[in-house]
């Protein structure tokens, strides 16, 4: 649910403990006429979730299957961060339901027509004309695990 506090805005709704609820409390008592300069920039722990998830209500995580988007750094089984509130402008990597199947591809304008392009030369572009297509969201980040990462 909505939370107008800037600090809480990055939270996953379900888990208050990780909901970015860390709020910088003023670190010094108020002393009239003697402000503490340190309070202007109170450094707190970096919150990767809040950094990546700008709009919690519209942000979803999905799993990529296949290697057609390798050129964009999307490997098989990678985790994608998808924001539904972003406009599917040409050039963006989108999740789009093609004939009912959620697909990740880059949206590209070719003359007057929009096509879905892979970023792996082994895959042909998919023309949108004549297909049942619904844009689902725009991919904003890829999380790729390297050897040594916890499964």
């Amino acid at each position: 649910m909505a939370s107008p506090i800037p600090g809480a805005a990055g939270g996953r709704a379900a888990a208050p403990s990780s909901s970015g609820a860390v709020q910088p409390l003023l670190g010094a008592r108020v002393r009239a006429g003697f402000p503490s300069p340190a309070d202007d920039h109170l450094d707190v722990e970096l919150d990767l979730h809040a950094h990546v998830v700008r709009r919690p209500a519209s942000t979803y995580f999905v799993r990529a299957e296949g290697d057609s988007m390798l050129g964009d750094g999307i490997h098989d089984r990678d985790l994608l961060v998808v924001d539904r509130s972003l406009e599917p402008l040409p050039g963006r990597v989108v999740i789009i339901a093609v004939d009912g199947e959620p697909t990740v591809k880059r949206l590209v304008r070719r003359g007057d027509a929009l096509v879905l392009e892979a970023s792996n030369p082994r895959y042909a572009p998919i023309p949108l004309a004549g297909r049942e297509c619904h844009v689902w969201g725009v991919v904003t980040h890829v999380l790729h695990a390297l050897p040594g990462a916890a499964p």
């Binding site: 999905v62 990529a64 299957e65 994608l80 990740v104």
Partner: peptide, 15 residues
């Protein structure tokens, strides 16, 4: 449970 379990996320085709 697409939005609450890491193991059950929506799968998107990159094939």
């Amino acid at each position: 449970r697409y939005t609450t379990r890491w193991g059950e996320l929506m799968r998107v085709k990159a094939r």
